[in-house]
Amino acid sequence: MMLIKMMTSSFAKPASLEEYRETVKRRRAPLLAGAAAGALIVVLGLAAVPVVCAGMEQVYFLSGLLTGMGSAIAAVSLLAVVKLNRQLRDEQALKNARLEELDERNQAIQKTACTATLVAAMVALIAAVVVFAFVDMAVFRVLYICMLGLMLLYVVVLLVCRRMM
């Protein structure tokens, strides 16, 4: 939900309540897609994993993991859609949601939290890369690619944001 909010509100700030109502309406489609993706993951966990990974030691673990993950994604997405629908019906709830979202202190808190999370993730990833260079070459390669990908993503996002501001 946080990601969808960022995607739909950071680039175009809804000035009026009507614009915000349209923004809230637009948020339902990606959430429903998320619910569908969650349901698909559940199906994969219940039907595909036992067939594809048959004979593997962790087949039950993998099946349970995917089923649980998919259920959680679908449930959270559907709850978010219900919340958005309630906001669309209740004018006061919509006003409150708009105020909470456009409040400049809340936005500053979110930016600080995102920056701190990115820094912590990068530090943890670099530490893990160094450790796994001595422990397991396969894990090291995966982590190294993730680290480079994250750095590249940061640079791309930074350049996009620079062009927009």
């Binding site: 105020l99 409040d103 202190r105």
Partner: peptide, 15 residues
């Protein structure tokens, strides 16, 4: 057009 918490933070000098 802000939340009450923002006014509180402004008043105590936290924001």
């Amino acid at each position: 057009g802000v939340t009450r918490q923002t006014i509180t933070s402004l008043e105590v000098g936290k924001y």
